[in-house]
Nucleic acid binder design. Structure first.
Length: 574
DNA sequence: GCCGTTTTCGGCCCGACTGTTTTCAGTCG
């Protein structure tokens, strides 16, 4: 979604990096980083704000607000351009190499004139680095290795892929004698949509057996660090995995610390400091006496700080600590609250499994209702016809009489055409229990046309849910450009739910958009979009994303009993 | 550069690991 916020965020991040490289005040660099993040996550478009409005955003003060206004009105900020002139862009690119930070990057530029990854490789080959203070032969090797890592895997991998690896490693660790507890932490536990590295925690008396076992796993390609408290490896897929072994008595403090986020930890540590306490991964201590006050469970640690336990998916410093202090944390939707999946496919279109198999797999998950929503004819390659979908309806109704405890819904996933039209006329659509409508083509329309297109779809009385609203594919394709605030408003006005598509390549809507949409009073549907029985469990990632958007059961229509969901669908059609 | 239930000045989270040093700086999370 192209908002001015993202551009401003990138600009401020660049400025922060340039300050760090230039050897400026580290706290100043961090101030710019904090402001960048705050603006990136701010719900309102900063393009419409003046200095006063900008300063109401946390961590944005007079100086940054003025730079942002200047940037938005003229496209230029002289201070930043001066920094750019002093430090070529290539030097900043060097800091993307793992193990090479701003200080060493600047030394390379200052002493050797290196200002690109290629020049750095040449300098290493010519052995020009080892004469520099703080550099040596090993550093050369580490940088070369970092460059190859950078080129092979550009950083983060999808939530689902990281979860698969983490769960394998956790299972291996749990088999080792002496393992008291083991789980994954970090951004994975927070259910971020992409994962930079996986943090595994073990509670045990001795660390050595676990450290050794990790380095010997077949999926390990490379041992990055191997110590008593921490071991880091890189998997064959290029994912970094950090293992930490903690004494069982500090499990809760360690889990809290390594779950993060960094910003949440800074917030909780600051809260501790104000109470004369010190919070580290080993526990919550009295700052004066050093006495340990809490460490065994996260509940104790948060409790001693005056907070209720905060769900990991909320720990992004989006106001969860303040809400916790006031007792106003939302009762988040949980996977167990989901009563049915409202967007699934069968092999009648591009799914892999026949109707009976999908229904059996859904029943095994304990759902109260389940919608089959195969593609409609405008997605031409699916070759759908009225006859085929009506035959499926017959088959589904017959199956419904044999399945106990689960209501089957016959639906379809319609295509929202370039003008906002749908595959079938209203009369035919009225025969479905539920229609999901999604954009599958013409991604490049103008913002105005795309916005009109979504709003027209919302205004169709048969459309209950807008499927994967931005149509992004994480890491492959950005979302379409539309005025989503206008779309969210239309959804709220017409009683149309927005999907939180749980497929790990989509997670669409994403957390930031969910937070924005919720302000309009929109309802959501967390759906798997399963094309195979094995996709039904993807729902967990959608629920995690919904939690990251602070959603409760009441916000999510497929947690509702059928009677309430039915009324919601009927109200739209009335 | 930002911020304030100790504050408009003086803090700003904290520890592990590595490689270079011989007590520490840089990097990372």
């Amino acid at each position: 979604m192209a908002r001015a916020n993202e551009k401003v965020e990138a600009l401020l991040r660049e400025y922060a990096d340039l300050i760090a490289i230039g050897g400026g005040d580290a706290f100043k660099a961090r101030a710019y980083e904090k402001a960048a993040r705050a603006i990136g996550g701010h719900p309102a478009d900063v393009a419409g704000l003046d200095v006063k409005g900008l300063r109401e955003i946390p961590n944005v003060g007079k100086s940054i607000a003025e730079k942002v206004v200047e940037y938005l009105s003229t496209g230029r900020v002289p201070d930043i351009e001066a920094r750019r002139a002093a430090v070529p862009a290539g030097v900043r690119a060097l800091t993307a190499i793992p193990g090479l930070g701003p200080r060493k990057a600047f030394v390379l530029y200052d002493e050797l004139g290196v200002s690109s990854v290629e020049q750095l490789e040449d300098a290493i080959r010519e052995e020009r680095l080892r004469d520099l203070k703080g550099f040596g032969e090993q550093t050369e090797q580490n940088i070369l290795h970092g460059i190859s890592v950078l080129r092979n895997a550009d950083g983060r991998i999808l939530l689902g892929a990281a979860m698969d690896i983490a769960e394998q490693i956790v299972a291996e660790m749990e088999r080792i004698p002496g393992c008291v507890r083991c789980t994954y932490a970090g951004s994975l536990r927070r259910m971020r949509e992409t994962i930079g590295d996986v943090d595994i925690l073990v509670a045990a008396g001795r660390s050595a057996p676990f450290m050794a076992a990790l380095t010997e796993l077949p999926l390990v390609a490379d041992v990055i660090a191997h110590g008593a408290k921490k071991t880091s490896v890189r998997t064959t897929a290029g994912l970094q995995v950090d293992l930490r072994v903690l004494p069982p008595a500090s499990w809760g403090a360690g889990l809290q610390y390594f779950t993060g986020s960094k910003a949440h930890n800074i917030r909780t540590r600051a809260l501790a400091v104000r109470q004369g306490l010190k919070l580290s991964e080993y526990g919550l201590f009295d700052a004066e006496s050093g006495e340990s006050l809490a460490s065994e469970t996260e509940e104790e640690v948060y409790g001693r700080l005056g907070l209720p336990w905060i769900a990991p998916t909320l720990r992004e410093d989006r106001g969860e600590v303040a809400a916790g202090l006031k007792g106003e944390l939302p009762a988040l939707v949980e996977e167990g609250d989901i009563r049915g999946d409202l967007h699934t496919h069968t092999d009648l279109t591009d799914g892999l499994a026949p109707l009976e198999d999908m229904v059996a797999a859904a029943a095994a998950r304990g759902y109260a209702y389940y919608a089959v929503t195969d593609h409609a004819p405008d997605l031409a390659m699916q070759r759908m016809t009225r006859e085929k979908i009506l035959a499926q309806r017959e088959q589904l109704r017959a199956l419904d009489r044999t399945v106990r405890g689960m209501r089957l819904l016959h639906g379809t996933e319609l295509n929202i055409g370039p003008e906002g039209g749908l595959d079938w006329p209203d009369g035919f659509l009225a025969g479905f229990d539920l229609c999901v409508a999604s954009v599958h083509s013409h991604f490049g329309q103008s913002r105005a046309a795309m916005t009109r297109r979504f709003i027209r779809a919302c205004e169709n009385p048969n459309v209950a849910v807008i499927g994967h609203p931005t149509t992004r594919r994480i890491g492959r394709r950005p979302g379409v450009d539309a005025d989503f605030d206008a779309v969210f408003e239309a959804c709220a006005r017409t009683g149309t739910a927005l999907e939180i598509n749980a497929h790990p390549e989509r997670l669409d809507l994403g957390d930031e958009d969910i937070l924005r949409a919720k302000r309009y009073g929109v309802k959501f549907a967390v759906n798997s979009d399963a094309h195979a029985t094995t996709h039904l469990p993807y729902l967990r990632y959608g629920v995690g994303t919904a939690q990251r958007g602070w959603l409760t059961k009441d916000d999510v229509i497929n947690t509702w009993p059928w009677s309430r969901l039915h009324r919601f669908l009927e109200a739209k059609r009335a």
